[in-house]
C-alpha cells in the first residue's frame, strides 16, 4: 500500500505561484495539493501534521520590501499559532525531522535560505548563504539550461540530467558566507542544480543569469529532503510552456514535472513512520 502524498502549498501575503504549483503537484500524482493561506497556518487552523510535502511557492512575500523573503523569514521566526507554543519555523523544522519534504521555489527558496534551513538543514538551521540582488542589478525573466549533480542527495533532482526552466527574479545571486561554507556545500553535493552552457556549469551571463557563485541554481540539505531553487519547475509541466515549442520537438510533458514526480515517488516509497 503506497504512502499517502498530500502537499501543503503556502499562499497569501504576496505569494504568486500557488495555483500553478498546486496544479503541478496534482499532475505529478499527489493525492491532494491544498493551497493554505498563511493566516490560517499562523492561527493554528491548518497544520503541517496533515501533509507529507510542504511547498513555499514563488512570489513577493511582504513585497520583498526588506530584501527578498526577509520580512517573511522574520514572520516565521516570530509567529506562534499558540501562545508559548512552537513558532512556524519550529513547526517546519519538526516537519523535516519527521521525514517531510520541503520545496521552495524562487521566493520560497529565498525564504528557506533566509530562515537558515538551506543548506545546513534542520539539525543546524542558521543562515550561512544568501540570495542577493542579481549581478546586473535587475529583475529578469528568461529561460536557462540546468545540469544536475548526480551525486547530490537531493530526492527531487534524481535523474533529471540537463534540462531547461525559466528564471524570473531580481534577487537570485547565490552567495556563500565564505570559502569554507562554499567548499562544504560542494563537497557534500548540496548544489543539485547549476546554470549551464553546453552542458557545463557557467559563470557567463546570461546563461548564469544572476552571477551566482558555483553557478548554483539550487541548494539541498544533507538529507536531500529539502530543495530550494530559483528556476520555476511549475512553469514547465507541459509542452506549450516551452519558449521554442513551435519550432522544436518538445515532449508533451515538461521537464519541470519530473521534479515533482520524483518527490511524490519518494513519499510513496518511504517506509511507514
Amino acid at each position: 500500500m503506497p504512502e499517502r502524498c498530500r502537499v501543503f502549498v503556502l499562499a497569501g501575503n504576496g505569494t504568486n505561484c500557488e495555483v500553478e504549483t498546486a496544479h503541478a503537484w496534482r499532475r505529478a500524482g499527489a493525492d491532494a495539493a491544498d493551497i493554505v493561506p498563511i493566516w490560517d497556518w499562523a492561527a493554528g487552523r491548518r497544520s503541517l501534521d496533515d501533509y507529507e510535502i510542504l511547498t513555499f511557492p514563488g512570489g513577493f512575500m511582504d513585497g520583498d520590501d526588506l530584501g527578498s523573503a526577509r520580512a517573511c523569514a522574520h514572520r516565521l521566526r516570530h509567529t506562534a499559532p499558540r501562545p508559548g507554543g512552537p513558532t512556524l519555523l519550529e513547526e517546519v523544522v519538526a516537519f523535516v525531522r519527521r521525514g517531510g519534504l520541503v520545496l521552495g521555489i524562487c521566493n520560497g527558496f529565498q525564504l528557506l535560505v533566509k530562515i537558515g534551513l538551506l543548506p545546513n538543514g534542520h539539525e543546524d538551521p542558521r543562515p550561512t548563504t544568501t540570495l542577493g540582488p542579481n549581478a546586473r542589478g535587475r529583475f529578469e525573466d528568461r529561460w536557462v539550461r540546468l545540469v544536475t549533480d548526480p551525486a547530490s542527495p537531493c530526492l527531487f533532482t534524481r535523474g533529471l540530467g540537463e534540462f531547461e526552466l525559466p528564471v524570473r527574479h531580481g534577487e537570485g545571486r547565490l552567495l556563500f558566507a565564505d570559502g569554507a561554507v562554499r567548499r562544504a556545500a560542494v563537497e557534500r553535493h548540496l548544489v543539485p542544480l547549476r546554470y549551464a552552457l553546453q552542458g557545463l556549469p557557467t559563470d557567463r551571463y546570461p546563461f548564469n543569469p544572476n552571477g551566482s557563485e558555483e553557478a548554483a541554481a539550487a541548494l539541498t540539505d544533507p538529507t536531500g529532503r529539502i530543495l530550494g531553487l530559483m528556476p520555476h519547475p511549475e512553469a514547465f509541466v507541459t509542452r506549450t510552456q516551452h519558449p521554442r515549442w513551435t519550432r522544436e520537438n518538445v515532449p508533451e510533458e515538461g521537464a519541470g514535472l519530473r521534479l515533482f514526480r520524483n518527490a511524490v515517488q519518494a513519499v510513496r516509497n518511504s517506509p511507514a513512520p
Partner: peptide
C-alpha cells in the same frame, strides 16, 4: 520584456519574445 514577468501563473503559450 525581460524585466517584466510574462510567465507567472503558468499559462504562457506564446511569449513576447520567441524564436531560436
Amino acid at each position: 520584456v525581460r524585466q517584466y514577468d510574462h510567465e507567472v501563473q503558468g499559462g504562457s503559450v506564446v511569449k513576447p519574445l520567441c524564436g531560436a
